[in-house]
């Protein structure tokens, strides 16, 4: 199958790529850049483990063809923090609130959570439940995740 040229900005760096029309954004990130923070949990849009930001909005990267992302900006969990050395306040909050167990859902959760707080700086429990409904976590029972998002929102205000 013929490969197609695309431009993709990943975590602030511009790349020119040749991709096959069937290649998903998740595959490009993982297989080519080894940005493995976006996880494969199902591949069919059910678990949210592959969530990344596309032009600032959370998307399921397993459900997007790379060609559809031509000219767009992708931020993965590895590039979420604006400062290289420090973690994003949402990442810190997840650790502090005990919201990280096996951690496999965590990157996707954190991405979805920051996108929520960008939109709504003081999310209620209800807001969080709606925003994170598409991110499955099998470990935590979600309780500490809800706490972490609230703490993260507070911290994001401070910085």
């Amino acid at each position: 199958m013929k490969k197609l040229p695309i431009e993709l900005t990943i975590n602030g760096r511009a790349h020119e790529l040749l991709v096959s029309p069937k290649e998903t954004l998740l595959n490009v990130l993982r297989e080519r850049f080894h940005l493995t923070g976006a996880k494969y949990g199902c591949g069919i849009g059910e678990c949210g483990a592959c969530t990344v930001l596309l032009d600032g909005l959370p998307v399921l990267s397993c459900q997007l063809l790379a060609v559809m992302c031509n000219g767009k900006k992708v931020v993965t969990i590895e590039g979420l923090s604006p400062q290289e050395a420090a973690a994003h306040p949402m990442q810190d909050s997840f650790v502090e609130e005990g919201a990280v167990q096996c951690g496999f859902c965590t990157p996707g959760m954190v991405i979805s959570a920051t996108a929520l707080v960008e939109e709504k700086s003081e999310p209620t429990t209800e807001d969080i439940k709606v925003a994170l409904r598409g991110n499955l976590c099998r470990c935590t029972g979600y309780e500490n995740i809800i706490r972490a998002v609230k703490t993260g929102a507070r911290k994001m205000k401070e910085v």
Partner: peptide, 14 residues
């Protein structure tokens, strides 16, 4: 926690 939240933890599939 930090490695997992920041996306640097490696799992077999990674």
């Amino acid at each position: 926690g930090r490695a997992r939240a920041n996306g640097f933890e490696k799992y077999p599939s990674d």
